[in-house]
Amino acid sequence: MRRCSKGARHDFSPKVFLGHQLRSSGKAEGEEALDILAKSPATARHISFKLAQYFVADEPPPPLVERLGRPVSGDRRRYPGGAQGAVHQQRVLESYGHKYKTPYHFVVSAARAAGVPVNNTRPLLAAISQLGMPLFGCLTPDGYKNTEAAWLSPDATTRRISFATAFARGGLPVGSLPRTRHAVLSDSTATPPDEPGRRRAPPNKSSARP
């Protein structure tokens, strides 16, 4: 989380944050607020829900969410809701083949399934963008949705099939090295050294040795 503190503009009046009285301490108030958020059961529930939704189902069973958000034997800083804890849930295994892939998952899994060496990720990034999920380009702070309702549509399916067709016939240059800025400039400006009928520019006099 990025946070900004400008001392002169800070409001030093007493504040109440989620029912807690904050000490008027300037920049440290932000740290205290983050601590309150980290210790809040609502935060644990929210993260547990997100984990369960990612690994299990769009609407995960409430008992699973509750279990993932429960502190480990009295230690309020440890939750079983870590990725490792969720992965070992039987429900994760049962959900295999049910979660609809996001565009990111779909494109990356297609590249993995194809087994082709990927030296150039730009076509894949472009495909992810065309499918509606530009990498790190979500406009809202809550991030991309991880549900079927957000991604499954006739238009999206058509686009995915188009990508699959182009990718399968080798229409995406993922194996070639990406064109660098230097290469682009060279193509338009370079003169082949041994091309007949062309004269090379004389060397710069200021840099030439006497």
């Binding site: 295999y96 083949g97 049910h98 979660k99 609809y100 892939k101 998952h105 779909f106 899994s109 297609a110 399934a113 194809a114 399916t157 995915r160 099939i161 990508f163 699959a164 067709t165 990718f167 399968a168 016939r169 080798g170």
Partner: peptide
């Protein structure tokens, strides 16, 4: 996937077969 569908995919050219697999509803789920 039905038997005839699976056979049709098996007989298809390699690129088409790959496209059919990558574009199948099964592949769109994880």
């Amino acid at each position: 996937m039905t038997g005839p569908t699976r056979e049709a995919i098996a007989e298809a050219p390699q690129a088409l077969r790959a496209a059919l697999i990558l574009g199948s509803p099964d592949f769109m789920r994880r």
